[in-house]
């Protein structure tokens, strides 16, 4: 790819920030991911969350889960497009925050919305498709959260770990469906999330297709070009 610069010395720059800068960026992202929670807590205390604060919290926590899922999925494409490879070092935290917001969303539903009315909750999960898919997305996030450490990567092996963590695609799709199915009539907002997700997954599909073609060209050199590798991606 165009972004591979092996021979250059590593001078601190936007592409190769010093360790301290990355730590600072991580801290900033950490605080930004917590900020909406602080807003909700203060709003709850001050009674400024509107006439239906439980609904406000439910919507906000759900929205942040979905946003963080999409931001997590944006890391790889952004890295590839900009060459900022250190972005990868934010991904685990972003993914874990998506899970944390998902848990907060579910806890809001269990506690503030249903008040642990287990019969009603079970009926919702089984009978209401939008709740079923939302619940499925949360359950699927659990193994990813549990394997988001180095030990797990080592134990699973890189390939298997990556295969497992590709379920993020399915989780994000379920998340958007969950949102789409719960709105009454105005699908504008879920449609925006769906478009962003489609773009993020579409880029991956396109790059995969390019890679497939490249490999195909490399594997059957005899068929075309008299033994020369036909390059699709310029060097």
């Amino acid at each position: 790819m165009a972004s591979i610069e092996r021979e250059k010395p590593l001078k601190p720059s936007l592409r190769t920030p010093p360790a301290a800068a990355i730590t600072a960026i991580k801290l900033l992202v950490f605080l930004l991911c917590l900020l909406p929670a602080l807003q909700l807590l203060l709003g709850w205390q001050a009674d400024t969350l509107g006439a239906n604060p439980v609904e406000t919290i439910t919507h906000a926590s759900g929205t942040w889960t979905l946003r963080l899922l999409l931001i997590t999925l944006a890391v790889t494409p952004l890295r590839r497009l900009t060459g900022l490879h250190w972005l990868l070092r934010l991904r685990r935290m972003l993914g874990l925050f998506a899970f944390a917001w998902g848990l907060a969303h579910f806890a809001t539903y269990l506690w503030l919305d249903q008040f642990f009315d287990w019969a009603a909750i079970a009926a919702d999960i089984l009978k209401r498709p939008f709740i079923t898919v939302g619940f499925a997305a949360l359950v699927l996030m659990l193994p990813l959260a549990l394997t988001s450490n180095r030990l797990a990567v080592r134990r699973l092996g890189g390939r298997r770990w990556q295969a497992l963590h590709r379920s993020t695609y399915a989780i994000a799709i379920l998340g958007v469906v969950h949102f789409w199915w719960l709105v009454k009539a105005d699908v504008l907002e879920p449609a925006i999330y769906a478009l962003v997700l489609a773009a993020l997954l579409g880029m991956r599909a396109w790059w995969r297709e390019l890679e497939r073609r490249r490999q195909l060209a490399a594997a059957v050199p005899q068929a075309r070009g008299n033994g020369r590798v036909v390059r699709i991606v310029p060097k």
Binding site: A51, N52, V54, A120, A123, D124, R128, P129, F130, W181, L182
Partner: peptide, 12 residues
Amino acid sequence: PRWSQATERRIG
């Protein structure tokens, strides 16, 4: 079809 109507939240 998408939610129960058995209960309601009185605003406030």
